[in-house]
C-alpha cells in the first residue's frame, strides 16, 4: 500500500500520454495525434458551449413570451404637455371615452348633417353594476 502511495505521489503519465521522444518516430506520431485530438476536442467543446448558450437564450426568450406578465406596463414619465410619444400617432380631436363615476359610460357620437356637426351624448345605464 505504501509503495502505491509513493508511486502516485509523482507525475505519472497515462499510457500513451507520456512525454514523447522527438527523436523517436513513433513518439512523434503519437504527439501529433494527441495534438490533433486535443484540437478536435476543443473545437467540439467550443461548438457545444456555443450551442448551449444559444439554446438557453432562445428558451429564455420563448418562456418569457409565454409567461403571464406580472409587472405593470412600463409608463414613460411625461410631464407638462410634452407628449413626445404621440409624435407618430394620428390626430384625434374628439373624445373617445369618458371617465366619470364608476359604472357610468357616455357614448359621444358626431355626425355631419347638411354641413353642420351634430354631437350627441348618450348615457348608458347598465343592467347591473358590480363595483
Amino acid at each position: 500500500m505504501d509503495s502505491d502511495r509513493e508511486h502516485r505521489g509523482g507525475r505519472v503519465p497515462l499510457p500513451g500520454f507520456g512525454e514523447s521522444d522527438p527523436a523517436h518516430p513513433v513518439g512523434q506520431a503519437a504527439a501529433s495525434g494527441r495534438r490533433d485530438g486535443i484540437r478536435h476536442a476543443r473545437r467540439v467543446s467550443n461548438w457545444t458551449a456555443a450551442a448551449l448558450i444559444v439554446g438557453a437564450g432562445a428558451a429564455t426568450v420563448a418562456l418569457a413570451h409565454q409567461a403571464i406578465p406580472a409587472a405593470a406596463p412600463a409608463a414613460a414619465t411625461i410631464t407638462g404637455t410634452g407628449a413626445t410619444a404621440g409624435a407618430t400617432g394620428p390626430q384625434a380631436i374628439h373624445s373617445v371615452a369618458t371617465t366619470s363615476g364608476s359604472g357610468v359610460t357616455v357614448t359621444t357620437t358626431t355626425r355631419t348633417v347638411n354641413g353642420k356637426t351634430i354631437v350627441t351624448q348618450i348615457r348608458h345605464v347598465p343592467a347591473y353594476q358590480d363595483n
Binding site: 410619444a85 407618430t88 400617432g89 373624445s95 371615452a97 369618458t98 363615476g101
Partner: peptide, 15 residues
C-alpha cells in the same frame, strides 16, 4: 403609441 398629444378623454363631473 397614442394619438398626437394623447388620447382625448372626457372627465365628467356628474353622471
Amino acid at each position: 403609441t397614442p394619438p398626437r398629444d394623447g388620447w382625448p378623454v372626457t372627465v365628467a363631473d356628474g353622471p
